[in-house]
Nucleic acid binder design. Sequence first.
RNA 1: GGCCCGGUGGUCAAGCGGCUAAGACACCGCCCUUUCACGGCGGUAACACGGGUUCGAUUCCCGUCCGGGUCACCA
Length: 486
Amino acid sequence: MSKTVRTRFAPSPTGFMHVGNLRTALYEYLVAKSLGGQFILRIEDTDQERKVEGAVDMIYRTMKRAGLIHDEGPDIGGEYGPYVQSERREMYLPYAKQLIEMDKAYYCFCTKERLDMLRENADEPGAGYDRHCRNLSPQEVQQKLSEGVPYVIRQKMPLEGTTTFEDAVYGTISVDNSELQDQILIKADGYPTYNFANVIDDHTMNITHVVRGSEYLSSTPKYNLLYEAFGWEIPTYIHLPLIMGKNDDGSTSKLSKRHGATGFEDLVKLGFLPEAIVNYIALLGWAPKDNQEIFSLSELTEKFSIDGISKSPSIFDYDKLEWFNGEYIKAMTVEQFAAAAEPYFRKALGDAPFDYLKLASILQQRTTKLTDIPEKIAFFAEQPDYDKELFVNKKSKTTLENVPALLKAGVEALEALPEWTHDSIHDCLINLAVTLGVKNGTAMWPVRIAASGMTVTPGGAVEILDILGREESLRRLHKGLEKLAN
RNA sequence: GGCCCGGUGGUCAAGCGGCUAAGACACCGCCCUUUCACGGCGGUAACACGGGUUCGAUUCCCGUCCGGGUCACCA
């Protein structure tokens, strides 16, 4: 019987849920769930300076909206708590001291100023810490400690040899130990660094699969040295290719705020549906065995496999996201769509009593983003001032010469209608075309233009007249007639 | 700069020694149509380069080039 798979999502509460982070969370969820395992949420707040008010709530909210339900976490507890690093603060120092006893770590009393100077004076970039305190005598250390000199604890890296590890995505990776810095494990404020807390927590929380972005690939050997020092089992590593954004100069770099709306909530505000976002980012770095593109979260869970994860970075493409969004919108029932679109209807129409279901039915097939709705329907509330040139359309064979008569005939026919319904308007205008001996388009174009004042509208003349209602429709048509007379 | 990783159309991507190198988005054209969409059909467009290995390389190896990541008392 093998161990239960456990993955964790460990965001730091900075008040922003980047889609890159969300994708990582999604894959962590999928790795766990596709293997029948558990998905844990842990808050990494060891940096007090970056802590942001309300950020944790935003994480909960985002995860919930994305459908990534965790099995253990600060809000719901679990047997490996606490799940907030600041609350585990006391756990880390003993482990660090244990490392010191094993000669795998040491006290460092260097001041921040000295380190800054070191960096400034370095000939080569990335020269790093000079290991100044690595070989202090026990007496010196005792002395400074008793004097209360502030200290940090650093990991004592081997000076020679190489460290090799297996990654489920990238394969075997080895790094010369001489490349590894004596990184800080415990900060002067007593908090652990991410580098240390992460290892201690993953082990004590029984995390079996560490899923994270490939930016951690080069620091993984350092973590392994820690696992080895403690004699702990090394987890399965699954490093994910990065999501990139396009820069102004055409180059690309790790997706960040400067690439525009990259926060989950930003995208939702832009009119993207959470399910569409999740679907899209699932496919950014992973591909199924077949060609399926539309996936619900449960289908993803079913089809997901680690060997489908790719190694090369991918660029976040808003066009493709929009396509997914459109697909999700089209898959809704009209009622669902009307409900989702309602806020945008209100935005454009205020409290005007339009039939939202009818609006939804003409809009649904042509909407890719909910935020596009208001501008498409604003003319229902208030007709824009338009130029009579709009009546001219080559394909519909309408000209300034024939339109007045066409529109007049249309108005008369419509005015004679006993009832004002979609079907009656439709039949009326179709009959009109027959009577006049012109194509449908020729009869409809002037009516639609006069009713809307726009060349491009959602729905045709019939739908627009129906939604507008008899009174307003006829008012607009007469206005069109006047405009043409001048 | 050192180290690590990557490199199939503009983008996401199949491919895992032998294929006319899939598919999707975007783009273009045609059809449908009362506009625009939707939908249908079709089209343009790719294995970074140079050496090997092999009967045969997109696929394996090496080098070059290009791209990215990383070198914090941030995570």
